[in-house]
Design a protein around this nucleic acid. Structure first.
Lengths: 197, 197
DNA sequence: TCCTTTTTAATACACTCGTATTATATAGGT
DNA sequence: ACCTATATAATACGAGTGTATTAAAAAGGA
């Protein structure tokens, strides 16, 4: 029998190499050769895991959202709801190097998804996930009486999403101006106002 | 004497061709040849106006912000301030095809500015402009008594900027979900809350 | 009409691209 | 120890890349 290599593990290794190349020099330079070199394997070998560059991109993009989901799922939920909500939203901001890294790559893929049809579905799927998550969060806050029961959960959920993504975007594009501290400040201000509604 | 061609006009023609290529197939495909073809001139001829691709990108990116500035400057300012403010902010959202086009290109350049040092300065300059504009707007509203005088103009200006950019981002990335109507709705809600402060 | 300066076009160079094909090395079951 | 399925590597191909160089065309003043 042949040499057995954990296929999925190898794909992840390559995808993470792609992340690093994208962060360093953009998607336009994430060529098969550059990514393979960053991953420490030969281009020919890489094609064994991703038969096409498009597959690699899709997998890499998907891995970003999986990582974020995993981090959120790993939070402890048996705490006061405001604490949980705050922590959830903090996972959607580039507050540390790990999250900044992932989100920079995510932005690159999202920006590309505007014209690259291969990424379009995944982009919309993740949006929908996030959207449902936010709406359910607001609805849960309403049920617990932490916000007005009449508050439109769908509407407020979308506002929440827009505001958090706005903070994250500024954090990525203008890191000197939008520091982690300021991001948290804006987030906390938003939540405080929300709880007054 | 030689054939005289309006140099600046020609550069603009080429830059707009670059926009179209970028919208259609991304910056990664905005090669010298592709842009020249879209502009209807030869690649060799194009190098007469932009001796390097980097120059073309910088000029194209700058032209986007100039166009937005021009549109804002063209607004009539002898109206009630809330109307003016609303119209100003509407210019920062992809509410029609023209603005959507420019902003898609702008997003591509901003995304690239994360790793492309050549675009970094322009990106920050435009941020600063926008930032000052928002802060002065809030301050002016405070002076007119339209918002609380104690309101921190700098803080609220940044919140405004984050929220507007968040709406615009969603408008670009999720046009089916974030329609022009919904963008205006979110904007008006924000302004209404602002005037209650 | 001719001449000079600018604009345009064409071609070339070295390099990188995505992908396909082919050959080599590797490691487990018999 | 050998065999075989798998993983890795190397090479090739046609096409596209940014940029430089060189030649042709064009148009207004003399």
């Amino acid at each position: 029998m042949p040499k057995i290599v954990d296929h999925e593990q190898q794909k992840i290794k390559v995808a993470e190499a792609a992340w690093r190349v994208i962060r360093q020099s953009g998607i336009e330079n994430a060529s098969v050769r550059n990514v393979a070199q960053e991953a420490g394997i030969s281009p020919g070998s890489m094609r064994h895991y991703f038969s096409t560059q498009s597959e690699l991109f899709l997998f890499s993009m998907n891995l970003v959202s999986e990582r974020a989901n995993a981090r959120i799922a790993a939070l402890s939920f048996d705490r006061p709801m405001p604490e949980v909500v705050r922590d959830m939203m903090r996972e959607l901001l580039p507050l540390n190097e790990e999250k900044r890294s992932e989100m920079e790559v995510w932005l690159a893929f999202m920006s590309r998804s505007i014209w690259d049809a291969a990424l379009h579905d995944l982009a919309n799927r993740v949006y929908e996930e996030m959207n449902q998550g936010m709406i359910r969060t607001v609805a849960a806050l309403a049920e617990q009486g932490l916000v007005r029961k009449e508050l439109d959960a769908e509407e407020e959920g979308r506002r929440m999403q827009v505001f958090v993504d706005g903070i994250a975007l500024h954090g990525l594009l203008y890191p000197e101006r939008m520091t982690p501290e300021y991001m948290e400040r804006l987030l906390d201000q938003y939540l405080e106002e929300l709880y007054r509604k």
